[in-house]
Write a protein that binds this DNA or RNA. Structure first.
Lengths: 193, 193
DNA sequence: CCACTTTTTGAGCGATCAGTCAAGAACAAT
DNA sequence: ATTGTTCTTGACTGATCGCTCAAAAAGTGG
């Protein structure tokens, strides 16, 4: 019923996500979003409601992509402490390779919006929890093998790692020296001993 | 010579800084800045040039205030590991007490602007370096007393601490549970053993 | 074919954006 | 008092903001 939509909705959200990621929420205009998504303002508002709703969908899209990618990487990189270390090094090299220096959309959104936007805060917290769970299983694995000290709470160590990871996404914005970044990663991982 | 300025320039910058801190750069309008500073647009532009220049002055103002406050606190709280721990706990309680959840202006600015604004990036990096230096001296003190493992580079540990601190300023934006935050601080400090 | 529904199109809405400017006011130097 | 310089005032600029809407187009059900 009705005229069928001519564009791929998921693809459009993804393009909006990339733009929000590059520029941030406030600095991205609906006009720019429209041309990036290939949509007239009318179509955009008809399909997504308003700028804020579109942003929330973009956040969700980002979370889905990042989480599945992180799961894949953890599965490919083995278990325990090694997987955690490879993950951190991967993030460092990923951020250094990105000429736009976009960092992490969740971290950026937390900094820009979380204090006065409850929806964004909830999404960032959910993403954070997801990440902590991923670390948690790796930590438990490491503790079983003896790579990681068992006397420390895996939950607390996971929170500690997420905190360091979020810090790293900020640090990379101003510090592009790979040696320094890897030293931070190394110091972070030594906290697991 | 000429008509004397009727307002306190430093005070005006400070009020601009508070507004930028609360709202971020893009979300703060020059009109809002003017009324917060008690200035007509003409006076504002005559004294500060444009919005971006005013923001850079506000960043500098923030750095001066925070750095001197941090130095005072470190001096008051003693030396070495204890001073570092008290500093982190202070930051946690400070951020939790702030109903606006502003976090750290340097971290917020890094997330919002550092990727495409070289002036901001330089200011954030300078602030980061200042903070690292503060940690560095405390670490060296701790190493001399034996509180902190001497076999680890004090410089790298300082970078690690700044990274964790920046992460904490993001984490507090979405995680208000003091227990969780203090556990992160505790895990961070155990990395110094 | 004819309703009926939904999407696309692109002009256009009022509001607000960062920034300007002419006029008047307050000082110093002469 | 006059001149020169700077600051204050507040109306004003063109551009852009997020968003709307009427008309046309493209589908489905009868």
């Amino acid at each position: 019923m009705g005229r069928p939509r001519e564009f791929d909705r998921d693809r459009a959200v993804q393009q909006a996500m990339e733009l929000f990621w590059r520029r941030g929420y406030e600095a991205t205009s609906v006009q720019e979003l429209g041309s990036a998504m290939g949509l007239n303002p009318g179509s955009l508002y008809n399909a997504f409601g308003d700028k804020h709703s579109l942003f929330l969908e973009a956040l969700q899209c980002y979370q889905n992509r990042e989480y599945t990618a992180a799961c894949d990487n953890f599965r490919r990189w083995g278990t325990g402490r090694v997987a955690i270390e490879r993950f951190f090094v991967f993030v460092v090299d990923y951020d250094l390779a990105d000429t736009d220096r976009k960092g992490c959309l969740m971290v950026n959104s937390a900094a820009e919006l979380a204090d006065h936007d409850l929806d964004v805060k909830a999404r960032v917290l959910a993403s954070r929890t997801q990440m902590a769970t991923l670390f948690h299983t790796a930590i438990v694995q490491g503790q079983q093998v003896g790579e990681i000290a068992s006397l420390r709470s895996a939950t607390e160590l996971a929170e500690f790692l997420v905190n360091a990871l979020f810090g790293l996404r900020i640090t990379v914005k101003v510090q592009h020296d790979r040696e320094v970044l890897l030293a931070i990663v190394a110091a972070t991982l030594r906290a697991l001993d």
